[in-house]
Amino acid sequence: MRRFEATKKVMETIGDELVVCNIGHPSQELFQIRDRPENFYMLGSMGLASSIGLGLAMSQPRKVVVFDGDGSVTMNLGTFATIGRVAPANLVLVVIDNEAYGSTGFQTSFTAGKLDLAGVARAAGIESVTVVDAEDEIVPTMRRVLGEHGPHVVLVKCAAGMPDGVGVIPIDGLAIRDRFMATVRG
């Protein structure tokens, strides 16, 4: 299972949740798998997907699902401390852990070595941390966490690599923002 297949499985469980997606290929893949106004594609600001999701979760009642990457979340490890402290019940942080910086050519990342992101999350006070390494565990895991009070961290262990033919997102930042804000307002 690569990031693409994992993202597809997670999206099978998504109803009206707000989704925030990591920079680069992860957002491009999500756009191809299932574009919807409730998706916020973060096209810059590497590391801040979980923070955007946290701000959303603190500000309104809908559930928020964040797709982050192991490389990006490692750039913002403080996010675990803040999520642990704020403890928003409506936040699910999905970390796609392919042990690589995928968008820039799959250079090896820190989780290929000694970094244990699930351990970091737990040590920061996040009680619900689930590690998933089989594709068929994703849907039941997501269904469970979406039905329980969070915050939740779901770490999905993936292989590096991506399919051919995934392209740049054809809508610009303001369009992404405006349709997202309109759907949040309801």
């Binding site: 600001s45 590391g47 801040l48 955007i52 701000g55 959303l56 979760a57 803040t82 949040v184 307002r185």
Partner: peptide, 19 residues
């Protein structure tokens, strides 16, 4: 409180998106 100002800008962005 936030751990770093950069993280804070991400959180503020989420807050603005939610109105």
């Amino acid at each position: 409180p936030v751990t770093r100002e950069e993280e804070g800008m991400g959180i503020l962005t989420g807050a603005y998106l939610a109105g």
